[in-house]
């Protein structure tokens, strides 16, 4: 009984964990790790506001030294959801978090709603590349976050990439591929089935056929083989180069997660 009660308490702790990061959702930039001076925060805030206004999509930037959720992905998800970020019906928005609780710059980009469609795997990789470039160019956290905002804006300006053109966001916030009816294929199949069947039935009307064999008159018991030989003559082996399908592409160094679209969120992470 005691064990059950303990289990209940543990479960309650995790599931009913209060929003430990309740914030003013209008600020959009939350430098809890104190990586930016106020002046830079103000500049970045204005850029974020510009993004939100232009692309009708929320943008949030978080830095933290504490992560009670274990993974940076979980942190990003809880921060976004618990504080009610996102615009429109599907909570469209993009969140960038730098988690320093392990002493390194574990970053994650979380996409929600329409942002799932705009920021494909490749685009998130590209954004991380821009952020990494800023870091290695010693532009500091300001430069990294500015690179995130700039790169995100560039892609938002380009709109939905070709790879996601045939998608939509369903009522659960998940990205789904639209199923387009393969009209041409169905027409060809129907044409072939109708034509072949009709041809076979038309042929049934022609009953008069020339006999070319006499199988019905062959005495099967009379067949006596004198020679029944199979001699191996030669062999030939050829090869053709057909590379295996490796089943996916590898990501750049430091990538800790791929883009996902379960639970209404997508995104990817990288240790910078």
């Amino acid at each position: 009984m005691k064990k059950r009660f303990l289990l209940f308490l543990i479960c309650s702790f995790f599931f009913l964990l209060p929003n430990v990061f309740a914030v003013d959702k209008s600020l959009k930039i939350y430098d809890d790790a104190d990586l930016l001076p106020d002046s830079e925060e103000a500049i970045l805030k204005s850029q974020i506001d510009q993004f939100i206004t232009t692309y009708d999509m929320d943008m949030v930037v978080v830095t933290t030294m504490i992560n009670p959720y274990g993974s940076v992905e979980q942190f990003a998800t809880r921060f976004y959801e618990d504080n009610g970020f996102g615009l429109n019906e599907h909570k469209d928005g993009i969140l960038f978090v730098i988690d320093r609780h392990l002493g390194a710059d574990d970053a994650y980009i979380l996409t929600t709603g329409e942002a799932l469609r705009v920021y494909s795997d490749d685009r998130i990789d590209a954004i991380f590349d821009d952020i990494s470039d800023a870091k290695y160019n010693n532009e500091g956290y300001y430069g990294m976050i500015a690179a995130f905002i700039q790169s995100s804006s560039d892609f938002a300006k380009e709109g939905v990439p070709a790879v996601n053109k045939n998608t939509y966001i369903d009522s659960n916030g998940n990205m789904q591929y639209k199923r387009t009816v393969p009209w041409l294929f169905l027409i060809i199949v129907s044409l072939v089935v109708a034509s072949v069947t009709t041809f076979v039935l038309v042929k049934k009307n022609k009953m008069v056929k020339k006999a070319t064999t006499a199988k019905a008159y062959l005495d099967q018991n009379s067949i006596q083989y004198g020679r029944k030989e199979d001699h191996f003559a030669h062999t030939h082996t050829s090869s053709s180069y057909v590379p295996r399908n490796t089943g996916g592409s590898s990501s750049g160094g430091g990538r800790v997660g791929g883009t996902t679209s379960h639970g209404g969120h997508g995104g990817g992470g990288r240790r910078l």
């Binding site: 009379s222 067949i223 006596q224 083989y225 004198g226 029944k228």
Partner: peptide, 8 residues
């Protein structure tokens, strides 16, 4: 090679 006798 096949060699056989048969009757029709």
């Amino acid at each position: 090679y096949r060699d056989a006798q048969m009757d029709y």
